[in-house]
């Protein structure tokens, strides 16, 4: 289980998270929606200890992430796969070497590593790219290699940072199906950040809207789609002109 408890995080005077609380049960997929720059990526990075909260805590399997020592953190990271928003492939290595990196760390045999790489690349619909360098791939291909790198590890948790942004609709659907299958077949617990509502409705057990540093509403797909909260309606209907009304209706939330 992943639990954010009243997390605060600022960069300089910019307060990004202001009392962010959310829990993700084992075996479910939770989608975080939110405006660009609202702190979704920042929230995800707290789960693997890439960022430390100014106040509050993130708890994974009962352990407070920012209190772990280096060995503890390494153990924690070994059960989490992280899909970066911009793929973050190591550019001095080929696609195969990128995928091998995490697998080698888990002490798998050569045969098993090859098997998993082949399987993971097939799952994201990529062929004949093993020996290419990231610079030789398109943005969407890189993104899919990033996803393959995380799922090849068969981790218990996968954190996806905008897995479908920048992909064509068909490839997006492939990735959505992959996320659903990871949960159904491998019982992976997923936390997905996205702007893509169609994708959110497909993969989510629950949806949470991050707004002004906190969770505005969290609930089933249905409850979010039928929400009466003006801020939520505004986001899912995508009406920029309503922003001012929303601020007022929200009772001066600032």
């Amino acid at each position: 289980m992943i639990e954010f408890k009243e997390v605060y995080k600022s960069f300089g005077d910019r307060q990004v998270l202001r009392g962010f609380s959310l829990s993700v049960q084992d075996g479910e997929t939770v989608v975080i929606l939110g405006y660009s720059g609202s702190g979704k990526s920042v929230a995800l990075k707290h789960v693997v200890g890439l960022l430390e909260p100014d106040a509050g805590e993130v708890i994974v399997d009962g352990e407070v992430v920012h209190q772990l020592d280096r060995e503890g953190l390494t153990r924690l990271r070994a059960k989490i796969g992280f899909v970066f928003q911009f793929a973050a492939l190591l550019d001095s290595m080929t696609v195969r070497e990128n995928l091998e990196l995490g697998l080698k760390r888990r002490g798998l045999s050569r045969a098993e590593i090859d098997e998993r790489i082949k399987e993971a690349l097939e799952l994201v619909d990529l062929e004949d790219v093993e020996d290419r360098y990231p610079a030789e791939l398109s943005g969407g291909m890189r993104k899919r290699v990033g996803i393959a790198r995380a799922i090849a590890l068969r981790p218990r948790y996968i954190l996806y940072d905008e897995p479908t942004t920048g992909l064509d609709p068909v490839t997006s659907a492939v990735i959505d199906r992959l996320i659903v299958r990871a949960r159904e077949k491998l019982n992976v617990t997923g936390l997905v950040v996205t702007h893509d509502l169609r994708s959110a409705y497909t993969v989510a057990d629950r949806i949470a809207l991050l707004y002004q540093g906190r969770i505005r509403q969290v609930g089933s797909v249905e409850s979010i789609r039928n929400s009466h909260d003006p801020v939520v309606r505004q986001f899912i209907e995508g009406r920029p002109e309503a922003l001012a009304d929303v601020e007022q209706a929200a009772g001066g939330v600032r």
Binding site: K45, T74, L101
Partner: peptide
């Protein structure tokens, strides 16, 4: 360059120090 392109973060999440 690895730092600003999050490659160092990626290494860390792959359990490398």
């Amino acid at each position: 360059t690895m730092r600003v392109t999050e490659q160092i973060d990626a290494l860390e999440t792959l359990a490398y120090d």
